[in-house]
Amino acid sequence: MTTPVGDTDFLVGRGLVKRYGEAAALAGVDLAIRPGEVLAIVGPSGSGKTTLLHVLAGILRPDDGQVLLGGHRIDQLGEAKRSALRRHEFGFVFQQGMLVAELTAAENTALPLLLAGTRKAQAMSEARGWLERLGLSGMEDRHPGEMSGGQAQRVAIARALAHRPKVIFADEPTGALDTKTGAATMQALLSAARTTNSAVVIVTHDRELAAKAGRTVEIRDGLIAKEVLV
């Protein structure tokens, strides 16, 4: 199945192929993402959904096909330029949060701003503002080991949003959380993303989580098998 590419699409994958040895994790995927939309990518383990996220995010290069951001190919960029692109244009939320244990919640949140050259005082002020938006007032000086799983994941969301990215890529963002905490964390992510008009691309096994997206694509055997609009 091919997703039509329109004038309003700004992150586009065309004919994406990614192989690992003889196996094709992606076998010719076309996918277009619009500003501010929430897209869920679902499918069984080994279907290619995480590979698709990594290719769209510039973490992996496709073996064939193109990835375009704002009409410009990013798959042809060198590693340094793709790394800079990920720092400035994209935000990431992973299953385990991947916070820096030695840093406080505010310092973790401020990290992408500091890497982008924002002055420390301003970065820390903005970080505290994001933590407040995500219901973590009073926890700014706690370290990840002093927080619950849901609280730590909200810090990861704050960090992903702090530099107001164009796209947030979330790979199983609630996979390590219980159902109630996962639902609340997901709602926090979507609400916060709306304030920046960031698109959100979620890879998940959770059908209830996927149902919160505006569009769902199902990956099977490296291809889009189904697409559902809510």
Rank of each mutant, 00 (worst) to 15 (best):
F10L: 04
K166H: 13
K18Y: 12
Q122C: 04
M147L: 11
A176N: 15
A183M: 01
H163Q: 12
G145N: 10
S137D: 13
T204S: 12
R87F: 11
Q95R: 08
I33C: 03
L136F: 05
A127D: 07
G58H: 04
L68A: 10
P62E: 01
L190Q: 00
A156N: 01
D63A: 07
L52A: 06
D221E: 15
A213I: 12
S83G: 13
R61S: 13
S137P: 07
R119N: 09
F90G: 00
S137I: 14
A110R: 01
G13W: 01
V100I: 15
M147H: 06
G21N: 03
I202A: 09
Q66F: 10
R34G: 03
A193T: 00
P44T: 14
T104A: 11
H163N: 14
A176G: 10
E107I: 13
M1T: 14
S198N: 08
A184S: 09
E79I: 09
W130E: 02
L26V: 06
F92K: 02
P62L: 02
P35F: 09
G46Y: 06
E132P: 00
Q151D: 11
P144V: 09
K81F: 10
N197V: 08
R73Y: 06
L114C: 11
L85A: 14
G150A: 07
L134F: 08
I168R: 00
R194H: 10
G222H: 13
G182W: 00
L11G: 03
F169L: 00
H54R: 03
V67F: 05
R82V: 07
E227T: 14
L136P: 01
F92W: 03
T216V: 14
G97E: 14
Q187G: 12
D63V: 04
G46K: 05
H143D: 05
A106S: 15
A116P: 02
S148V: 03
D178Q: 02
K212Y: 05
S125V: 05
A105N: 04
G71S: 11
S198H: 13
E132R: 01
G71N: 09
Q122V: 13
D30P: 11
G70D: 13
L223N: 10
V67H: 02
M147Q: 07
D75W: 12
T181A: 12
A32N: 07
G135C: 08
H88N: 11
G145H: 07
L52M: 04
